[in-house]
Amino acid sequence: MTVKMIQPPFLIPGDGLAIVSPASIINPDYVKGAVKRLESWPLGVSVSPHCLGKSGAYAGTIDERIDDFRQALYTPEVKAILCSRGGYGCVHLLDQLADDVAHNPKWIIGFSDISALHALCVSRGIMSLHAPMCKHLTAEPADDRCTQYLRQILFGELPHYHEKTHPLNRCGEARAMLVGGNMAVLCGLIGTPYDVFRPGTVLFIEDIAEPPYKIERMLYQLKLSGRLASLAGLIVGRFTEYTENPGLGGTLYELISQMVEEYDYPVCFDFPVGHVPDNLPLIEGAEVTFAVGKQSVELSFCIK
């Protein structure tokens, strides 16, 4: 599948970055720590008006969160937008922000529920950055590899990931567009304009606190709709905070392996992406080379 994607401009020292809270309430200490880290790169960091706000479970009302995001998109000095955290709520913003995002391609950064915003970017043909957010930038040391990779990508230095193998991996190579994120969030967008499950892509998936039977149910939705069969490759990330259920006939990874065993594309398991400290930044919408071998898993980005 060949799709012409727009790559937001890479940053240069002194560029602006805005921190917004498009979903749940954020601990102010994490924002403070992230500002300190980002200013050291160096970037000019601004905190959106409602970033530290509270409206029920959310950082602001829907209108307040939309306004913060729009302000960041339309401010010329702002070249990237860091979502402070995930947590449910991004789905409220999709239709209202669709045209604004399309008219102002900037790096949108985050993961978890931010997968909905990445799906929006893909739907508008714009690359975005599935990557750590404020808590990680605050809690992890400056030399943390994911923090360093995030910085490098933003400034145009693209990494080549060389990761460990897993017994369930299936060897092979693919060159295709990379899409993915949180399973529950993305499956909730199937059949909408923000459906990322497209033929010929390399898909990466992760989730937190979802029982294995629910993950299997989501995968059956993808399988029965033909979406699993049409992939060019599958990256199974880290699934966390769940309990294995032997009654299902295997571990979660084994269940996923069984779901895709009839297909011939490369598959890797336990790739470092998800709700874990070792959460490698991935450029959504970028063409990648993905190679699963007996000795390692390789992933690199084919953009300038």
Rank of each mutant, 00 (worst) to 15 (best):
V179Y: 00
L228N: 06
L255D: 06
V47M: 09
L137M: 15
H162V: 10
V202L: 07
Y242W: 10
G226D: 04
K106F: 05
K32T: 15
Y242H: 13
Q221L: 15
I81K: 00
D63Y: 01
P9A: 14
L154M: 10
M133I: 09
L224H: 14
W107E: 07
Y161D: 06
V196W: 09
Y263I: 02
G191W: 07
G172Q: 05
E163K: 11
T75A: 10
D29Q: 15
G89H: 01
G191Y: 10
L52P: 01
K223N: 12
P132S: 12
Q96P: 00
C268D: 07
L219T: 06
R65G: 06
R65N: 03
S230G: 04
S296K: 09
F290T: 03
E298T: 04
L231D: 08
E241A: 14
M183C: 15
H50F: 09
I6G: 03
T2D: 13
L97E: 02
L189W: 10
G172E: 01
V78N: 00
I126N: 01
G233C: 01
R145Q: 12
V3E: 15
P9S: 13
G180I: 03
K4E: 13
H160Q: 12
E261A: 12
G53M: 04
K135S: 14
P105C: 10
I26G: 06
Y213C: 13
